[in-house]
Amino acid sequence: MSFKKIACIAALSLSAISSFIYAGSAQAISFQITTGITGPNGETNQGAFSEFTKLPATRTVNFNDGQAPTTGFAKYSFETGQNSSVRLDQWAPAGANGEVNNNGQYLAVFSGDQVTINLQSSLNYFGINWGAISSGNVFSFYNGNTLIKSFTTTDVNPVAPVKASQHGGEGNGYLHFYSDSSSDIFNKIVITQTGGGGFESDNHSFHLGTDRFTGFDPKAVPEPSITLGMLAVGGMFLRKRKNEKLQSVSQSH
Rank of each mutant, 00 (worst) to 15 (best):
I133R: 01
S135A: 14
V138S: 06
V138R: 14
V138C: 08
F139S: 01
F141Q: 06
F141S: 01
Y142I: 03
G144P: 13
N145R: 12
T146K: 10
T146I: 06
S150R: 06
F151G: 05
F151S: 02
F151C: 04
T153K: 09
T154Y: 12
D155E: 10
V156T: 08
N157M: 05
P158S: 05
V162D: 04
A164Q: 04
S165T: 14
G168A: 00
G168R: 07
G169Q: 00
N172V: 01
G173D: 05
G173P: 04
Y178K: 06
Y178T: 09
S182R: 06
S183K: 11
D184G: 07
N187I: 02
K188T: 03
I189Q: 03
V190N: 07
I191L: 15
I191H: 05
Q193G: 07
G197I: 00
F199N: 11
E200V: 04
E200C: 07
S201I: 14
D202G: 05
D202F: 01
N203T: 04
N203C: 03
H207A: 01
L208D: 08
T210C: 00
T210P: 00
F213H: 02
T214Y: 08
T214G: 07
G215P: 02
K219L: 12
A220S: 13
V221P: 09
V221Q: 15
P222E: 06
S225M: 10
I226T: 07
I226Q: 09
I226D: 12
I226N: 04
I226G: 01
T227H: 12
L228V: 10
L228S: 11
L228M: 11
L228K: 09
G229A: 00
G229I: 03
G229F: 08
G229N: 01
M230T: 07
M230Y: 02
M230A: 14
M230I: 15
L231F: 13
L238N: 10
R239V: 15
N243C: 09
E244I: 11
K245I: 15
V249P: 11
V249K: 14
